[in-house]
Nucleic acid binder design. Sequence first.
DNA 1: ATTTATTAACTGAACATTCATTTAATTAAA
DNA 2: TTTAATTAAATGAATGTTCAGTTAATAAAT
Lengths: 201, 201
Amino acid sequence: MDTIKKRQNAGVRKPDIVRNFYQVILEEGIEGASIGKVAKRMGIHPSLIIHYFQNKENLIVALVDYIIRRAGEIYRELIVQSGDPGTRLRSLVAIFFSEAWYGMSDLGGDFAILSLSGREPRVDARLREMYALLKQLIVGELEKIFKEGGITVRDPKRAAEIIISMYEGYRHFKHFYIEEGDAEKFREDMIASAMAALTNN
Amino acid sequence: MDTIKKRQNAGVRKPDIVRNFYQVILEEGIEGASIGKVAKRMGIHPSLIIHYFQNKENLIVALVDYIIRRAGEIYRELIVQSGDPGTRLRSLVAIFFSEAWYGMSDLGGDFAILSLSGREPRVDARLREMYALLKQLIVGELEKIFKEGGITVRDPKRAAEIIISMYEGYRHFKHFYIEEGDAEKFREDMIASAMAALTNN
DNA sequence: ATTTATTAACTGAACATTCATTTAATTAAA
DNA sequence: TTTAATTAAATGAATGTTCAGTTAATAAAT
């Protein structure tokens, strides 16, 4: 029977609160997300949220942790998939411009969190950790590829940083200046440009 | 004498309110920016802000208008400066990775507004307009350059879009994964990568 | 196996504050 | 004297948080 379990333990309830908080942010923005709305949506009392997180700031940090942890998992999944031998470099680059990568998170949520990073040091620190992890993963892949194939690269770390800059710009901003019908062609052109930028570096 | 003029007319007061609203957002984020705080900071009554903007949403839209209009002015200024004959393409690209361009607006403010665009159609529309203008400016410059020099480019519009994606990614995200000491070298490498991506396209 | 003690999950009500907004009145400039 | 700028006063709803209490699950003792 799937009657609504009343009493949940912290291990279930806490992440559940975080997830619902994220959902409210997606629907109403960071400026419209309140503890009260999260509680109402879950059918619990606002003070239960305070009980677990003490204050709203901690809840926000917990949310950032949640998102970043999830992102880290997807990083590993997607990057590992690029294991075919021949054109490995291209397929690695292609990942970052793929639908799977693009749809990894909600852009509105991304911007909401990014807007916090300037004022909340804990958010900034976590974002840096996330990018450090990602960079490290890319560097690892690049080194593997370059060791096998004849391609040489001056600095894989720098190459990784360029890839990240390119795909972040693509991912977060293309929507503002690329029309629907041109999306797929632009994607291919961006991959080509990234390749040109990398092999030239 | 610079005594505080009491009664201002709408032409002065309205943009003044918008500017102060932006300042509050920079200091406290979009979620911490309220009409009351803006009023207090200006030494006026909150209802005066309502009088001019009817509601908070309109104030936000007015802010976006303000920011975008200012950005448009800076676009023209900076791009026109690239008027030396020889290496015009490179100097054009360099503009987008320059300090002047980078410091054009506050990143925290950028993200705050970008986070609105998903839920507020008027904000989204204005951002699209802004990028359309920018794209047009770049295309115009590229065509001039290509007509003179021997360089050929398949599609200047696409070239402009790639430049925008690259510099937006650089501008908004580099801070998370580039260390202070490496900033200038990274800037040069990004310019080189952009050039490689463009001339290859 | 049943009672007892302890911990954890959760609610209720009240808190002062702030919020955006409305309506009416007042002041100054044209 | 008409018009525009500005404030005053008041609104109800929502904000985050506190505190004291209640209910349920778990562990220990009998």
